[in-house]
Design a protein around this nucleic acid. Sequence first.
DNA 1: TTGACATGATACCTTTCGGTACCGTAAAAA
DNA 2: TTTTTACGGTACCGAAAGGTATCATGTCAA
Lengths: 106, 106
Amino acid sequence: MNTQTQNAFRALADPTRRDIVQMLASEDMTIAQLTGHFDMTRAAVKKHLTVLSDGGLITFEARGRERINRLEPKGMAPVLDWLRYFDRFWDDRLANLKNAIEGTNR
Amino acid sequence: MNTQTQNAFRALADPTRRDIVQMLASEDMTIAQLTGHFDMTRAAVKKHLTVLSDGGLITFEARGRERINRLEPKGMAPVLDWLRYFDRFWDDRLANLKNAIEGTNR
DNA sequence: TTGACATGATACCTTTCGGTACCGTAAAAA
DNA sequence: TTTTTACGGTACCGAAAGGTATCATGTCAA
């Protein structure tokens, strides 16, 4: 079976982790910075980051005593691939998506 | 917060449930039919179907003593909408998806 | 050098999850 | 009618998930 697909879907299953992904879409952030946006301990946030890393959705780089967390777009590929399997079922939605893509590419 | 989005992502987090979704993409099936494809009890499969139903990914219809389970494409909308938020990050992947869509639409 | 700061790592707790076993009910078939 | 058959529902179990608390470590700054 495909471990990457499973890890990616699992990573996206938690609302906190989806929020983290959205935050990292705006800018790279340290663990402490991310923790500032949630009502939980740094240890909890770091666990979520580990799950996101296992899912291939983020990477990180140690810089001094800080750890810069960064979004990894490639990690979303297994998810998009799996969804693509159902093209014929949600054509209308995919049409919207297609329009959005064409809009941003111009 | 958005419960539909959470329930949909949660429903997709389990490999058995993703398999069920793929099977229902081929044809509508009863609980017993689905169970035949897995190495687990009917009760376990039914639990998965309940989670999928909560996520809005399937619907079902009682027909006599059988229950016909059917894929519900609309349920995927929250997932696709969430993913669309990140357009600018996975442009290359979206480009592939766009090509696939155009291919199937022609 | 000393102290504050950002993180890593581990143990522990509680809840949820995936699964089985078992019982009951309604419909189809003999 | 009697007997299968396809369900629904609940109780229960072990494992994993989400979270806290705590301690250790490396780094930056005074």
